[in-house]
Design a protein around this nucleic acid. Structure first.
Lengths: 147, 147
DNA sequence: AGTGAAAGTGATATACG
DNA sequence: CGTATATCACTTTCACT
């Protein structure tokens, strides 16, 4: 599916505020709301749009720590881990990566004790490396059109 | 601000689909839409809710590579980098972290050539390590209430 | 903090350029 | 692919609890 300039403008609106009404998007891009609605539906069907979410502040809801945890899985433990990781509430994102290490996870934790117990759950799967997140310098920056 | 059970149910709805109407949320949690609207507004004002966004598939819009790039900044180069990184369209997320390395970025790229030219832009700031993302195992999992 | 009702606005389906 | 219209749903405001 091709994405024309109009669709990029719509995607820009939706990336910046997923709850913007179709009517408001229409005003900003210069078409009527049924046209916006149809274009959005087509992009959803083509899986260009994969969903709409809300950012909530982990800190404000009681998660005092955020960390990146890298896992180097033991022989034969990667596949079991790829299933297990889906069940951890602490894991916000999990990427499988190339290189010596296999997995990077972004996790939210209550406190140091919670971090310790979480890492304890990982040690049966492999060696871990923990990097505490000090600040989120760029947050979910908008994906832009290719030149 | 305290977050009661009702607000957690609202946050669950909004995290799973930011475009759900207040009326529909109300039906699912058992209150009327003006009540939903007021609760959402208070959570926005308290910065518990930090925004609403749309996931778009980088691959579908022409970004064939995703990578995690770690930067170990040269002496005196961290601060300039923290400003510069905001201007890179490739960087979707950027975290400042503890440890030997200072920065981890999630980046989207057109192809290997684009990766090469992007890394070239980083070498004046520090040493980089690149991990290509093979798959996104857990995608923006919902943040849940603490026990 | 939530409800119910009124007025305004938005969404959706259909007919038609 | 888009608009225009009509109908229905949703949002917002406000008086009341």
């Amino acid at each position: 599916m091709k994405i024309d300039e109009l669709n990029w403008k719509i995607l820009k609106c939706l990336q910046n505020n997923a709850r913007m009404s179709n009517a408001e998007i229409g005003r900003q891009v210069g078409i009527t709301s049924p046209a916006v609605s149809e274009r959005i539906k087509k992009m959803e069907d083509a899986e260009i749009i994969q969903g709409y979410t809300t950012f909530i502040s982990p800190f404000e809801v009681g998660y005092q720590l955020k960390a990146l945890i890298t896992l180097r899985a033991f022989m034969g433990m990667l596949k079991p881990f790829l299933e297990k990781v889906k069940t951890y509430d602490e894991v916000v994102n999990c990427y499988r990566i190339t290189g010596n290490e296999n997995i990077v996870m972004e996790v939210v934790l209550k406190n140091q004790k919670h971090l310790e117990s979480f890492i304890d759950q990982l040690i049966s799967f492999g060696e871990t490396k923990t990097q505490i997140v000090l600040s989120h310098v760029v947050k979910h920056s908008e994906i832009k059109a290719l030149e």
